[in-house]
Design a protein around this nucleic acid. Structure first.
Length: 570
RNA sequence: CGGGGUGUAGCGCAGCCCGGUAGCGCGCCUGGUUUGGGACCAGGAUGUCGGAGGUUCGAAUCCUCUCACCCCGACCA
């Protein structure tokens, strides 16, 4: 591609609303333009990247035996009503009426549509298994779109759905996809990790997320450096402490702690470690008031808590409700002396504590030396309701956990028969029995991958694209293109040679000054560059530089074509 | 939705407190000089100051309403 025939739209300064580095760089490099909140135009340069990502996904999906189709983005409401998701999904489902006042949605995901396809087409176990996928624009009316393409409202997604005659076959395909995703993200050149995940609102049983590792990631991942255990912290189990509750050594005492509401402050005032304090959290399920207890330095895991059957769903109690049930405002509440009708749910860690510190249910006072059994009744329930922290024992018993952050770019689920039962997607098995199909579902955030790749690969000059998804693999930078016939000839000759070898090559024939030209080529992340100038040509050399390297190497003009082709495998 | 903030030229911003004919840098156009790391000189174009209403002789500036966007909390690829 000749730069003068292409459309580069770089910016020296990033628009001020861009928050994270990948968003800023995508805007500055002219990959995307914002049209509305969370909605972006993919400019020609950005589209080239997107297409390369798509191609890799498509190749690997096909190789794994999946078959591509394309479903409509606009879906009639009846399908969503069949599975009750019309009512369950909430406001991020974009709904509208057509001219006949019929309800439609813009699909945020396509379980209903694909299940409808399956139930119409599949009658016999002989037609199974079947895995269909598409790469399509989705729309989710996110509460808060942010980080550019990372959490857009409209985004490109690869979503695949598989149908099986047995759970065993679903598990086989699930493993197949686990492997396929690993291959895809490896080919994309990303540093990633597969982690055990919560199944969320889509429902079903087994589930893994694929995360690109990046400090700016929105998810926290707990992993064990000594084994292959990795899980979203939403899911990672906090094991019960191995040591049993120590005997009590202190008498319970009421201490004035005016103005000290946070556990850290109370601990500091009493010169005690925070790990001796207990935090009480008041929640409501319907009309029932509950008290949750976690150690002062821990945080509540709302996903775990909401999985407790008697709490599902729960919400945090208002100040008024807390006062009504405990006679005290939040900040000084605790489990001692409360009514019998208030169930106390203690985290595993809390249930093993002794001589602990908690609120006294009286403004400005805490209790110290509190002990289960002696000063208050044993907790009504003991569950794992906290987030794991760095250093907690790994659930697989192989050493302490570490925590890192990731960007979720892929997610695989075993849906089982949730949708096939709701939509009567059945088949006849070998014995002529009608059975619901086992289903799996497999998503990849195509647009998000571009953001994640940049988040992971950039420096102060701009983007450094992995070869596999770079908009161009190599750039030719002629210095003095307009003025020097010899530079022009050498550049065009190399361009023709590399193009002929099948490389994606950009020749910067804009006749820009060298500084501007280099800055642009570096900003947009082209991984290799050949610089051709009169100075070098006089001694018969050109310069070759990898985007990641600090310096260029001189190469005899006669050898540059071969060298590039060798480096880029063409 | 709750809390905080911002809307002035394509992008980044000043001006607003204290009303008086809208500015700076980058970019853009023309001409010239330049040409190995975002050049220089000269000339030029570009704004319903987010929108509506109000106060005032006069509003970017004060008041009211509205819209959009951004940031912090509940969602997900």
């Amino acid at each position: 591609m000749r730069a003068t025939h292409f459309f580069l739209a770089t910016l020296k300064e990033a628009p001020s609303d861009a928050e994270i580095i990948s968003h800023k760089l995508m805007l500055r490099a002219g990959l995307i333009k914002r049209l509305a909140g969370g909605i972006y135009t993919w400019m020609p340069l950005g589209l080239r990247i997107l297409r390369k990502v798509e191609t890799i996904i498509r190749e690997e999906m096909n190789r794994a035996g999946a078959i591509e189709l394309l479903m409509p983005a606009v879906v009639p409401a009846e399908l969503w009503q069949e599975t009750s998701r019309w009512d369950m999904y909430g406001p991020e489902l974009l709904r509208f009426k057509d001219r006949h006042q019929r309800d439609f949605v813009i699909g945020p995901t396509h379980e209903e549509v694909i299940t409808d396809v399956a139930r119409r087409e599949i009658k016999s176990y002989r037609q199974l298994p079947l895995h269909l996928y598409q790469i399509q624009a989705k729309f989710r009316d996110e509460i808060r779109p942010r980080f550019g393409v990372m959490r857009g409202r409209e985004f490109l997604m690869k979503d695949g759905y598989s149908f099986h005659a047995s759970y065993e076959d679903l598990q086989r395909e699930y493993q197949n996809m686990h492997l396929t995703y690993t291959r895809i993200f490896t080919r994309l050149g990303l540093s990633f990790r597969a982690v055990a995940a919560d199944t969320g609102s889509i429902g079903g049983t087994g589930s893994h997320e694929f995360h690109v590792l990046a400090d700016s990631g929105e998810d926290a991942i707990a992993f064990c450096p000594d084994s292959d255990y990795a899980a979203n912290v939403e899911l990672a189990e906090a094991l019960a402490p191995v040591s049993l509750r120590a005997g009590h050594a202190e008498k319970m005492m009421k201490i004035a702690t005016p103005g000290k509401i946070r556990c850290e402050d109370v601990a500091a005032l009493l010169k005690a470690p925070v790990t001796r304090t207990v935090k009480a959290i008041a929640v409501m399920h319907d009309r029932q008031f509950f008290m949750l207890l976690i150690r002062g330095d821990h945080t509540l895991n709302e996903v775990k808590a909401s999985k407790l059957p008697f709490l599902n769903p729960f919400r945090f109690a208002s100040d008024e409700e807390v006062e009504c049930h405990l006679g005290c405002r939040p900040g000084y509440i605790g489990p001692v002396g409360i009514r019998d009708g208030i169930p106390v749910i203690a985290d595993r860690t809390v249930s093993q504590m002794s001589d602990f510190i908690c609120g006294a249910n009286e403004a400005g006072y805490h209790l110290t030396g509190v002990n289960w059994g002696r000063d208050l009744r044993e907790p009504d329930y003991v569950f794992d309701i906290r987030n794991v922290v760095e250093g907690d024992p790994s659930p697989d018993g192989k050493g302490p956990l570490s925590i890192c952050r990731g960007i979720e770019v892929g997610h695989i689920f075993q849906l089982r028969t949730k949708y096939s039962e709701a939509m009567k997607a059945t088949f006849l098995d070998e014995s002529g029995q009608s059975r619901a199909m086992e289903m799996g579902c497999y998503g990849i955030g195509v647009t998000r991958i571009v953001g994640a790749a940049i988040e992971q690969n950039h420096d102060e000059r701009g983007i450094i694209f992995p070869h596999a998804i770079a908009p161009f693999e190599i750039a030719i930078a002629p210095v003095g293109y307009g003025k020097s016939q010899s530079v022009r000839d050498a550049a065009n000759k190399l361009y023709a040679e590399l193009k002929g070898a099948g490389l994606d090559v950009l020749i910067d024939d804009r006749d820009e000054r060298p500084g501007a030209m280099f800055a642009d080529l570096e900003l947009i992340g082209i991984p290799h560059r050949v610089t051709i100038g009169e100075r070098g040509l006089k001694e018969g050399t050109v310069e070759y530089q990898e985007r990641r390297e600090a310096v260029a190497i001189k190469v005899p003009i006669a050898e540059i074509g071969a060298l590039v082709r060798e480096r880029l495998g063409a």
